[in-house]
Computed example of a mutant assay.
Amino acid sequence: MPETVVAMTDIGILLCKKNAEDKFEKLVSVTSTPDTGGAPSQIEVTELDSQYKQYVSDRPDTPSFEFEFNHTEANFAAVKAYVSLTEPKEYLIVYQDGSGECFTGTGDAWIKGYSAGSGGKCGLAINVSTKSHVADTASIMVTTP
């Protein structure tokens, strides 16, 4: 009997960038990923003869995706070389089962503050302009030998 997946874990999650060949490749190993959605905003539209408040869904928010990654000069340089505040870039989060979230946006990376007894982290924030769920990322990823 095939094994049923009950849930996924963080093991194997990738943050990827689109390369010149229109395929996604790993950008940097991340230590945290953002929520990729949320509850919709509401607009109250209660009519005076209604016994209950009435609502309709508002426009969806354009999200900001924030990631953390370990601070090394190589990691920071790789992210800074790709991310842009003015030119939208394409990214892909790949989950353990091969599904993912593809998104486009502008953003920046920075070195987070240090404190005693902790490893250094960097932040990456992307102001997302488009996003979509990808059921199977295999065909859009760079294949490794």
Rank of each mutant, 00 (worst) to 15 (best):
residue 82 Y to G: 04
residue 89 K to S: 10
residue 129 S to L: 11
residue 53 K to Y: 11
residue 23 K to D: 04
residue 23 K to W: 06
residue 39 A to M: 07
residue 127 N to S: 15
residue 5 V to M: 12
residue 111 I to P: 02
residue 144 T to K: 13
residue 31 T to Q: 03
residue 53 K to M: 06
residue 43 I to N: 15
residue 78 A to C: 08
residue 36 T to K: 04
residue 4 T to H: 10
residue 56 V to G: 04
residue 83 V to Y: 05
residue 36 T to A: 11
residue 63 P to Q: 07
residue 76 F to K: 08
residue 55 Y to S: 02
residue 104 T to C: 02
residue 9 T to I: 07
residue 112 K to R: 02
residue 86 T to D: 15
residue 99 S to H: 05
residue 40 P to K: 04
residue 135 A to M: 00
residue 78 A to E: 02
residue 43 I to Y: 10
residue 5 V to P: 01
residue 142 V to W: 02
residue 56 V to T: 14
residue 22 D to I: 06
residue 103 F to A: 03
residue 87 E to Y: 09
residue 52 Y to A: 15
residue 144 T to N: 12
residue 51 Q to G: 12
residue 89 K to Y: 03
residue 11 I to P: 01
residue 30 V to F: 03
residue 107 G to V: 00
residue 121 K to T: 03
residue 138 A to L: 07
residue 86 T to Y: 14
residue 144 T to E: 13
residue 90 E to A: 12
residue 123 G to Y: 06
residue 82 Y to Q: 06
residue 33 T to R: 11
residue 113 G to T: 09
residue 9 T to H: 01
residue 145 P to Y: 11
residue 96 Q to D: 08
residue 142 V to Y: 04
residue 43 I to D: 13
residue 37 G to E: 08
residue 9 T to E: 02
residue 135 A to E: 13
residue 76 F to R: 08
residue 16 C to P: 02
residue 49 D to L: 15
residue 67 F to S: 03
residue 100 G to L: 04
residue 133 H to P: 09
residue 23 K to C: 05
residue 1 M to E: 12
residue 28 V to H: 01
residue 102 C to P: 00
residue 53 K to Q: 11
residue 72 T to Q: 02
residue 6 V to L: 14
residue 90 E to V: 04
residue 16 C to R: 01
residue 18 K to L: 03
residue 74 A to D: 15
residue 23 K to S: 03
residue 32 S to G: 00
residue 69 F to P: 01
residue 60 P to H: 07
residue 91 Y to Q: 07
residue 96 Q to W: 08
residue 43 I to E: 14
residue 48 L to C: 10
residue 22 D to P: 15
residue 98 G to E: 03
residue 56 V to Q: 09
residue 95 Y to R: 05
residue 124 L to S: 00
residue 66 E to S: 09
residue 4 T to G: 09
residue 5 V to T: 14
residue 109 A to K: 06
residue 84 S to E: 07
residue 122 C to D: 02
residue 38 G to K: 10
residue 25 E to G: 13
residue 70 N to K: 06
residue 66 E to Y: 01
residue 76 F to Q: 10
residue 36 T to G: 10
residue 27 L to R: 03
residue 28 V to Y: 02
residue 59 R to H: 08
residue 45 V to D: 10
residue 55 Y to K: 03
residue 33 T to Y: 12
residue 76 F to D: 01
residue 122 C to F: 00
residue 17 K to Y: 07
residue 85 L to I: 11
residue 86 T to V: 15
residue 145 P to N: 15
residue 101 E to L: 05
residue 135 A to I: 07
residue 41 S to C: 04
residue 60 P to F: 02
residue 93 I to P: 00
residue 55 Y to T: 01
residue 12 G to E: 09
residue 125 A to S: 02
residue 100 G to F: 06
residue 52 Y to R: 11
residue 79 V to C: 06
residue 72 T to I: 04
residue 40 P to D: 09
residue 80 K to G: 04
residue 80 K to L: 14
residue 5 V to R: 13
residue 103 F to H: 02
residue 68 E to N: 12
residue 142 V to C: 05
residue 141 M to F: 03
residue 104 T to Q: 05
residue 69 F to Y: 12
residue 98 G to I: 00
residue 24 F to T: 05
residue 115 S to E: 08
residue 11 I to Y: 13
residue 123 G to E: 00
